[in-house]
């Protein structure tokens, strides 16, 4: 089996550590948020402090802290959800949310490879019962096969023949990448089909 019980337990453990860590991270961000907020309040509510020559600069610093808190909090939210995807090998989830989440978390990798990523999520995809963590791994594996820099990648979701498909393609390029040689890389995963410049991850509903 592609997904052994032992591996699943290991993943659940990693997922638990991630979700505990992100919970702590949120607490730390909450402390920074309230401390910076209190500084801002002092500037706003105290006439004496408001008149300080550095007041404008202090406000700018507080705004910058606030922006970074929001940025980090957003990442923590996605990382927490990512951790919980490993809770169970089978769960009900929204494919678009699941794909978007892993793409956000892989953003730095995508930027390092100078990939221009476009997404086209089909609206109204049904909730699906399958393995969300495995789906995210396959999306990662598909992106990892892109070794050429400055590439345009389209990640598209759609429904076909009662399955939900995530298609990763470089079709828009003058010389699209041919993924056929990468077939062995995906061999254990029966859910993946490769057709030239297209990688399809096919998700079937495993719910009752």
């Amino acid at each position: 089996m592609f997904w052994e019980t032992g591996i699943q337990r290991h993943l659940a453990f990693i997922g638990k550590v991630i979700s505990l860590y992100t919970h702590e991270q949120k607490n730390h961000l909450a402390i920074i948020n309230e401390s910076a907020g209190l500084l801002g309040d002092m500037l706003e509510f105290s006439e004496e402090i408001k008149e300080l020559p550095q007041a404008r600069q202090l406000l700018d610093i507080i705004k910058s802290i606030d922006a970074q808190i929001k940025r980090s909090s957003e990442m923590a939210k996605y990382l927490n959800a990512f951790g919980h995807r490993m809770d169970s090998p089978i769960a009900s989830f929204n494919v678009n949310d699941c794909v978007h989440e892993v793409l956000v978390l892989l953003n730095r990798l995508i930027a390092q490879k100078r990939i221009t990523l476009k997404t086209d999520y089909a609206a109204g995809l049904p909730q699906i019962t399958s393995n969300p963590s495995r789906l995210q791994l396959l999306v990662f594996m598909a992106l990892a096969t892109v070794t050429r820099e400055n590439t345009y990648i389209l990640v598209k979701t759609f429904n076909a023949n009662d399955s939900t498909i995530i298609r990763i393609t470089t079709e828009g390029l003058d010389a699209p990448i041919d993924f056929t040689e990468q077939s062995d890389y995906f061999k254990p995963a029966r859910a993946v089909t490769i057709n030239g410049s297209e990688i399809d991850i096919i998700i079937n509903d495993e719910g009752g």
Partner: peptide, 15 residues
């Protein structure tokens, strides 16, 4: 239980 958070928030709400 996060004292720094709760005390700063307390002050902010009192303001």
């Amino acid at each position: 239980d996060e004292e720094d958070y709760a005390s700063a928030l307390t002050e902010r709400l009192n303001l």
